[in-house]
Amino acid sequence: MDDKDLDILKLMQGNARLTADSLSAEVGLSPAAVQKRLKRLRESGVIQNEIAVLSPQKLGREMTVIVEVTLERESRQHLDAFKQRMRGAPQVQQCYYATGAADFVLIVVTKDIKEYEAFTQEHFFDESNVSRFNSSVVMERVKVSLDIL
């Protein structure tokens, strides 16, 4: 990977809909060269996915909660089971297995407190391996990004 690849990646992470023509004008390569680089970056897994970022508020998902979860038992089987449940929960936007005071940190998006309460009942209270969880309701989304570069 060289500086031209990094320039392409910086532009793509801000707007994945940019055409090869517009990228080529920005990075100083031909559209064909940009297309070849993009193909290589996608095939190698550097570009994992190209997604649309949706507005939670415009879709009625007004409540974001940061949740720290501590498990009772941390065997590989228990960790994998929790990870699988979080992957399948539509309210979980992000899930991180982490070090520190909690085993997992979640970003959960719901329409309201009632939906969040139902989520906690199903995934925390009804789950015997969840020792405790701590919720922090987001007051304002100051910065939301998956940018790396």
Results as ranks from 00 to 15, higher is better:
31 P>N: 03
139 M>F: 13
41 L>P: 01
75 S>N: 10
129 N>W: 03
6 L>W: 07
22 S>T: 14
25 A>N: 07
129 N>E: 02
110 T>M: 02
127 E>A: 10
109 V>T: 11
112 D>I: 01
113 I>P: 04
61 R>F: 13
32 A>V: 09
59 L>E: 05
55 S>F: 10
118 A>G: 03
96 Y>H: 12
46 V>A: 08
148 I>K: 13
55 S>W: 08
69 V>Q: 06
4 K>E: 05
15 N>A: 06
78 H>I: 11
70 T>C: 06
136 S>C: 07
15 N>P: 08
50 E>K: 10
52 A>R: 14
91 Q>P: 00
19 T>P: 02
15 N>I: 09
3 D>W: 11
30 S>N: 02
83 K>T: 09
101 A>M: 15
8 I>M: 04
20 A>L: 09
128 S>C: 04
31 P>G: 01
29 L>R: 01
75 S>M: 07
16 A>H: 09
18 L>C: 05
36 K>W: 03
51 I>C: 10
67 V>A: 13
40 R>L: 09
119 F>A: 02
97 Y>F: 14
114 K>V: 14
38 L>Q: 01
142 V>D: 10
3 D>I: 11
84 Q>G: 06
35 Q>A: 15
3 D>V: 10
105 V>L: 14
46 V>G: 05
136 S>T: 06
145 S>P: 02
93 Q>P: 12
35 Q>N: 12
94 Q>Y: 10
1 M>C: 06
141 R>K: 12
14 G>C: 05
73 R>W: 01
44 S>K: 03
130 V>I: 14
127 E>D: 15
119 F>S: 02
29 L>E: 11
88 G>S: 08
105 V>E: 15
138 V>P: 00
122 E>V: 12
141 R>A: 11
48 Q>P: 01
124 F>Y: 12
28 G>Y: 06
59 L>M: 13
78 H>G: 00
92 V>L: 04
103 D>N: 14
82 F>I: 02
56 P>G: 07
117 E>Y: 11
116 Y>Q: 02
54 L>N: 07
80 D>A: 14
108 V>I: 07
68 E>G: 15
68 E>T: 07
47 I>T: 03
21 D>G: 09
65 V>A: 07
124 F>S: 00
120 T>C: 12
